[in-house]
Simulated scan of single mutants.
Amino acid sequence: MRVLAEFIMRGRMQAGLVVVGCAALPLLFWLSAAAGSLVLLRRGLGDAFGIVALALLPGAVWWYFGEPRTLLLLLGTLGLAQLLRSSVSWRLVLMSSVLVGLAYALVLEEVFRAPIEAMAGELRQLMPQLLQSATPLSADEQTRLGALLVPVLTGMLAALLQIVSLLALVLGRYWQSLLYNPGGFAREFRALRLPGPWALALLAGMLLAPSMGIRMAMLAPLCSVPLVFAGIALIHGLVAQGRLGRFWLVGLYVTLLLFMQLTYPLLMVLAIVDSLIDFRGRQTPKGGSGAANGEG
C-alpha cells in the first residue's frame, strides 16, 4: 500500500493514471476514490482539481450505461475529504456522511427502482412465513410493514455505499499519514468519539424516521453508519490505552465479517454509551501532532 501511495504522490501524471484507471475498471472505483482523497487531502482542492475532474469522467460514462455508483462514490468521498481537510474533524465527517448517504439513496431510488421493487415484492411474499414465530400483526400493520420495504432496502443500499465512501476516505487519510506523519491517523481515529447529543440524534433518526413518513424510513440505515464507525474507534482506542488486549481487534473484525447481524448493533450501542460515559477518558495523546496531514 505504501508503494502505491508513493506512486500516486510522485506527480500529476501518476496520480491521474491511478485515479482514472481505477475508476474505469469494474469493482476498483473505491480505490480511485481513495487515491483522489489522498491527493485532495495533501494538496488541496485547487491543486487537485484537474486530477479530481479526470476521475469523474469514467464515473459519468458508467452512469450513462446505468451504473451511477462509481460517480456517486467519487463525489461523496471527495466531498467528505474536503470537509476533513478543512475541519480536521472525523466527527463532522461521520455526521455529514448521513447527508451524503441520503443523496445516494435519492439517486439509487430512481435508477434502481425496478430491481428494488422486485426485491421488496419477493420479501412481501415471504413475510407471512417470517412473521409466523413473531407476534401476529394486524392487516394494517402488515400493509405498513410491506410499504416500508422499498425505502428501507433503498436506505440499506445507500448505507453500503456510504460505508465504502468512509472506508475509501479512511484509506486515503491512512496513506497521507503513512507518507507525511506516521502515526497521525492512528491518533485521530482512536480519539474519535461522538458527543452525546449527536449520538442521541442519530439514535432518534433510526427509531423515529419510519414514523415520520414512509420515504423517511431510508434514513434509519444511514444514521447507523456513524455509530458503527464510532464504536470501532472506541475499541481501537481502548486497545491503544492497554485496557483491552490486541486480540479484541482480531475478534472485532472476524465477528463483524461472520456475524454482522450481531456485531453491527453491538457497536452502535457501545458508541452511544461511550458518547455519554466516555470510556477512554479525557486523555491527551503524548507526542506528535494529532492531525494526519503532516502539516502541523
Score class of each variant (00 low, 15 high):
Arg190Asp: 14
Val239His: 03
Leu99Asp: 00
Arg215Glu: 10
Met216His: 10
Gly50Asp: 07
Arg42Lys: 15
Leu171Val: 15
Leu99Cys: 05
Pro195Ile: 09
Leu256Trp: 13
Pro195Lys: 11
Ala217Asp: 06
Gln241Arg: 13
Leu192Asp: 13
Leu219Gly: 00
Leu25Thr: 09
Ala33Gln: 00
Gly237Asn: 04
Thr77Glu: 01
Ser177Gln: 02
Leu258Asp: 11
Val39Gly: 07
Leu130Val: 02
Ala114Ile: 12
Glu67His: 15
Ala201Cys: 14
Ile163Trp: 11
Pro136Glu: 14
Val164Tyr: 06
Glu117Gly: 02
Gly36Lys: 00
Gly245Tyr: 07
Arg124Met: 15
Gly36Ala: 08
Gly290Ile: 04
Ala139Asp: 15
Met206Leu: 13
Phe279Cys: 05
Leu45Cys: 06
Leu92Ile: 07
Pro210Asp: 01
Pro128Asn: 12
Val100Trp: 00
Leu258Trp: 13
Pro197Val: 13
Gly46Leu: 04
Val19Gln: 07
Ala48His: 08
Arg282Ala: 15
Thr154Asn: 15
Met1Thr: 11
Val164Trp: 05
Tyr64Val: 10
Pro210Tyr: 00
Phe112Leu: 14
Met127Asn: 02
His236Leu: 06
Leu149Met: 14
Met1Asn: 13
Arg85Ser: 11
Leu131Ile: 07
Gly155Lys: 02
Glu122Asn: 09
Ala220Met: 10
Thr154Tyr: 08
Leu252Glu: 14
Ala34Trp: 08
Gln142Asn: 11
Thr154Val: 12
Gly281Cys: 09
Leu252Ile: 13
Thr135Ile: 10
Pro226Trp: 03
Val52Tyr: 03
Leu123Cys: 07
Gly50Asn: 06
Leu106Glu: 03
Val61Ala: 15
Met119Tyr: 05
Thr263Gln: 13
Gly205Asn: 05
Glu6Ala: 14
Val111Ser: 10
Val111Gln: 11
Pro68Phe: 14
Val273Tyr: 04
Gly231Phe: 05
Ile272Leu: 08
Leu234Cys: 03
Ala48Arg: 08
Thr77Gly: 01
Leu244Ser: 04
Ala139Asn: 11
Leu108Asp: 06
Val107Gly: 03
Leu219Lys: 03
Phe7Ala: 12
Leu161Thr: 10
Leu266Cys: 12
Ala139Met: 08
Leu276Gly: 10
Ile163Asp: 08
Val225Lys: 04
Leu266Glu: 09
Arg2Asn: 11
Thr255Leu: 15
Val107Phe: 01
Ser177Leu: 01
Met127Trp: 06
Ala209His: 07
Ala199Asn: 12
Leu276Arg: 09
Ile277Lys: 11
Ala271Thr: 01
Leu71Glu: 02
Asp274Gln: 03
Glu141Leu: 14
Arg69Tyr: 04
Phe29Ser: 02
Leu166Ala: 09
Ala118Pro: 08
Ile8Ser: 09
Leu106Arg: 02
Trp63Leu: 13
Gly155Leu: 00
Arg190Cys: 15
Arg124Cys: 07
Phe65Ser: 14
Ser97Glu: 04
Gly146Lys: 12
Leu27Gly: 02
Thr255Gln: 09
Leu71Met: 10
Leu153His: 05
Gly21Phe: 11
Pro221Ala: 13
Leu106Thr: 01
Gln283Phe: 07
Leu238Gly: 01
Phe247Met: 10
Trp248Ala: 03
Val88Asn: 14
Arg246Met: 09
Trp248Glu: 14
Leu171Ser: 11
